[in-house]
Design a protein around this nucleic acid. Sequence first.
DNA 1: TATGCAGTTGCATAGAGTCTCAATTATAAT
DNA 2: ATTATAATTGAGACTCTATGCAACTGCATA
Lengths: 140, 140
Amino acid sequence: MNKPGGISSKLSELGYRLTPQRIMILSAIDNSDDHISAEEIYAQVVAKYANVNISTVYRTLELLKRLGLVTETDMGEGRVRYHPVGKGHHHHLVCQECGAIIDLDESVLSSVKDVLLREYGFIADLKHLAIFGRCVNCRK
Amino acid sequence: MNKPGGISSKLSELGYRLTPQRIMILSAIDNSDDHISAEEIYAQVVAKYANVNISTVYRTLELLKRLGLVTETDMGEGRVRYHPVGKGHHHHLVCQECGAIIDLDESVLSSVKDVLLREYGFIADLKHLAIFGRCVNCRK
DNA sequence: TATGCAGTTGCATAGAGTCTCAATTATAAT
DNA sequence: ATTATAATTGAGACTCTATGCAACTGCATA
Ligand SMILES: [Mn+2]
Ligand SMILES: [Mn+2]
Ligand SMILES: [Zn+2]
Ligand SMILES: [Zn+2]
């Protein structure tokens, strides 16, 4: 357990406690193939330890975001989804007509990031963006 | 009243009713210098007609969004802000450290839009984006 | 005028996420 | 081992936004 380079070892290195709740939350995030929601994390954790509160899930996600260990994306479902940064950066095109989701390499936005840095000195936090619009099939 | 090209004339042209509630909501949006929130719209309307419900504000905003008459942006305040598209497209840089908001011309994202259209046939709906990150003063 | 009907609204309620506060837990100091 | 201190949690209130439903409105037609 606690493999080096993983989220949990990062957390304890930084002086945060590895509570049972956090361990279960981190494992849910790590074992998820794609993006996972707070409610889905909670469902997995509560199955093992009925007493967890969803506040703890939200607080842990907040901490992981702040430390740059997970990214958060709103894909327009009415709830936000998360995934560990260790699994690579990318973006998504989300069709508002048919719901299709097209994956995008992070390089698509690197030119924008460069411009913002050069012209405004602004370090843009574009790690996992969802861009809404109309896909090929749905445009009239 | 109901100046040509304004939001209300667009609405009635499209066959939607110009109810007193909608007229008051539209006037709140139009008279706002910058971005206005649902709660702020509601406060203005309820001062004139105590019986309005905030659901009506949200439903009207939803309609205006769908018709492309207002844009919506989450600037990280915990509530969304709106403004009429007639007042011009632009984007914002939002510093997560000090809260500074830097206005951005829409051209900054036009190259991305072009790439998405050319390579994916995707029409990106990037009318009023908030890009989070760290401003010049706050980057270490 | 009366009737039909779709559009719209208020109200009640629900869901996602945040926040406050007291209780619990882990760590450090004695 | 005991005590002090800080980190973390559970519980519940609360905010923002969305939605189901029944009542109301305005227009069209008879
Ligand atoms: Mn993704
Ligand atoms: Mn703006
Ligand atoms: Zn589509
Ligand atoms: Zn700043």
